[in-house]
Design a protein around this nucleic acid. Sequence first.
DNA 1: TAGACTTTTCGTTAAGTGTCGAATAGAGCT
DNA 2: AGCTCTATTCGACACTTAACGAAAAGTCTA
Lengths: 104, 104
Amino acid sequence: MGLGRWVPLSHPDIADVRLDDVLRALADPHRRAIVRLLIAEGDRPCGTFGLPVAASTLSHHFRALRQAGIIRQWDEGRQRMNTLRLDELDARFPGLVAKVLDAD
Amino acid sequence: MGLGRWVPLSHPDIADVRLDDVLRALADPHRRAIVRLLIAEGDRPCGTFGLPVAASTLSHHFRALRQAGIIRQWDEGRQRMNTLRLDELDARFPGLVAKVLDAD
DNA sequence: TAGACTTTTCGTTAAGTGTCGAATAGAGCT
DNA sequence: AGCTCTATTCGACACTTAACGAAAAGTCTA
């Protein structure tokens, strides 16, 4: 699965998630599309989002979302699964994610 | 007031305001502070925000907010006034600005 | 007219972003 | 072992960003 397996996947504690990072992450339309699909169709591996970008670019967007505290990832066989940290995000920034996604 | 007086102040039509730009503009804490002060204390000139940055940097942030469609500016004597386009923003992205400002 | 005041533009610097292709590395299958 | 599949890292590129100081422009006041 690439070199990023030895360094285990790290996720920020929800208390350490910064609004700056969340907003910057959601300011990108590809990343909003990822979040929207996670809400609409549930947890899914990276390769199933159908975005028109190279695999390496996709990987970059998933990392941005994970480091911002928006998604959680784990490995399952040869794929990497993604889930939205919606409950945690709503506890920290109530209603924010929904409002952003509603906005377009 | 500087060279930017001959090119008159331009503000995007609210219909042309893009979510990407609004989120990117609000992802900066100095710019959120500007918006928050406009809500709390009403329209005010650029020099009255008390941010710990150089005047030229402040100017840069006001331009970012204006071009994103978040504030409207006009000249009054030797100062440049600022107002939040909150009604327009709420018509376009209902509740978004309030949610973002509430979030921290 | 001369000076003070407010704000912008310009030039620079350091850092960050989105994108791609190539190379790499596990997992699973034959 | 070898091959395929999924996803990552790396290096490169063009572009954007936040920040500063210096210079300049317009407005107001003395």
